[in-house]
Lab assay of single mutants.
Amino acid sequence: MSIQHFRVALIPFFAAFCLPVFAHPETLVKVKDAEDQLGARVGYIELDLNSGKILESFRPEERFPMMSTFKVLLCGAVLSRVDAGQEQLGRRIHYSQNDLVEYSPVTEKHLTDGMTVRELCSAAITMSDNTAANLLLTTIGGPKELTAFLHNMGDHVTRLDRWEPELNEAIPNDERDTTMPAAMATTLRKLLTGELLTLASRQQLIDWMEADKVAGPLLRSALPAGWFIADKSGAGERGSRGIIAALGPDGKPSRIVVIYTTGSQATMDERNRQIAEIGASLIKHW
C-alpha cells in the first residue's frame, strides 16, 4: 500500500482519535458579512469528516447552483462504474471539434489522439474542462443518470439537468442544476469515506481534487503551510461562485467545507476574496 493510499485508508482512524471539535460562531459572522459585502445569498456548511456531524452552517438547506462543483460527483459516478466493471479508466475516447464547448483548455489539445477516461476526469476536476465533463456525462448516460446515481446514494436534493455550459445559467428560483450545502457536503463525505467506492477509487477521487489547479484564489489562499486540501470550485452566471473541499491540518483532511453564493453584482475577484476570507476565519478558529 502506498503512503497516499495509507493516508486515505486511515482518515477515519486518525479522526477518531482527534480531540473533540467545537464550532466557532466567528466564522458564521464572516459568512454573514460576506453576504453584506456581496449583496447576495451565501450558503455555508462545515462537517466533521469522521462523524458527519454538522459543526457550523448557514442557509444549509437553500438551493444554490452547483456550477462546476458537480464534476466531482460526476467522476465519482464514473469511478463507481469502474468498480462495477462497467468502465475502464484506460479506455480512450475520441471526439471532434464539434464536441468542444466553451472553456476546454485540455480537451482542445487532444482532438487528434483523444483522451482516456482517467485523463478526462483529471481534466474535468483539476482544470474544470467543460468538454471533458460533457464527454464523461455521455459515458454514464447524461445528466439524468448522474441525478439517479445521487438518488441511489441517498441524495434526493442534488440534481443535474443540463450539460456544460448551460448548467451554469443560475436563474433565480430555478431548481435545475442545483444542490443544497448540506446535501453536497453529505454526498461528498460519502464519496470520500464511505463504502460506495473502493479504496482505490476513493484515493483516485481525492487525488484529482488535491491536484486542483484553478481554485488557488479561494480556500487555498488562506491555508497555512502543512495543511491538506482537496477541492473543486465552480463559477456561473449572475454572480455565482462555489467551492467544495476536504481539508485539515497535519497533512490530512478532517472536515468537509461547502460554500456557495449566487445573485451578486460583485466582480469575480471580490467573490473570490470573500470566500478566501471565510476560509481564513475557519482556519483561525479551527
Rank of each mutant, 00 (worst) to 15 (best):
H24V: 11
P25K: 05
E26L: 09
V31W: 06
A34S: 05
E35R: 02
E35H: 04
L38T: 09
G39A: 07
A40K: 03
R41C: 14
V42G: 01
L47Y: 01
D48S: 00
D48Q: 00
L49A: 15
K53R: 02
L55K: 04
E56Q: 01
F58M: 11
R59L: 02
R59G: 01
E61L: 07
E62A: 14
P65I: 04
P65R: 12
F70C: 04
L73F: 03
C75W: 08
A77W: 09
L79E: 06
L79N: 07
R81V: 01
R81E: 07
G85I: 11
G85W: 03
G85M: 02
Q86K: 12
E87H: 12
G90A: 12
R91V: 10
R92G: 08
I93N: 15
H94C: 12
S96C: 05
S96N: 04
D99K: 08
L100P: 12
V101R: 02
V101N: 05
E102Q: 07
S104R: 09
S104E: 05
P105N: 02
T107C: 01
K109W: 10
L111H: 01
L111C: 05
D113Q: 03
G114C: 08
T116C: 00
E119D: 11
L120I: 06
L120M: 07
C121W: 03
C121H: 13
S122V: 15
S122C: 15
A124T: 08
I125P: 14
I125S: 15
T126V: 04
M127V: 04
S128N: 04
S128G: 04
D129I: 15
D129M: 12
T131V: 10
A132M: 15
A132W: 13
A132D: 15
N134G: 06
L136M: 04
L137E: 05
T138H: 05
T138R: 07
G141L: 09
P143H: 06
E145Q: 05
T147Q: 15
T147H: 12
G154K: 08
H156Y: 02
H156N: 01
H156G: 04
H156E: 02
H156P: 04
R159Q: 12
R162N: 12
P165A: 10
E166L: 10
E166A: 11
L167D: 05
N168E: 09
N168M: 06
I171G: 06
I171K: 00
N173T: 10
R176L: 00
D177N: 04
M180C: 00
P181W: 10
A183R: 07
M184K: 09
A185K: 04
T186G: 09
L188N: 13
K190V: 15
L192R: 04
T193G: 06
G194D: 05
L196D: 04
L196H: 13
L197T: 09
L197D: 05
T198G: 09
L199F: 01
A200G: 08
S201W: 10
Q204H: 06
Q204N: 14
Q204G: 08
L205T: 04
L205R: 05
D207S: 08
D207M: 08
W208D: 07
W208H: 10
W208R: 06
W208C: 07
A211D: 03
G216I: 06
G216N: 06
L218W: 05
R220I: 11
R220G: 13
R220A: 01
S221V: 01
L223E: 00
W227S: 02
F228Y: 15
A230F: 11
A230I: 13
S233Q: 12
A235H: 11
E237W: 08
E237C: 14
E237T: 11
R238N: 02
G239Y: 14
G242W: 08
I243S: 09
A245T: 14
P249Q: 04
G251P: 05
K252P: 00
K252Q: 03
R255K: 09
I256K: 14
V257F: 07
V257Q: 04
I259N: 14
I259R: 06
Y260A: 00
T261E: 14
T262S: 13
Q265W: 12
Q265R: 13
Q265G: 11
A266V: 15
T267I: 14
T267L: 08
D269L: 13
N272M: 14
Q274Y: 13
A276Y: 06
I278A: 14
G279M: 08
S281L: 14
L282W: 04
L282P: 07
K284Y: 05
H285W: 02
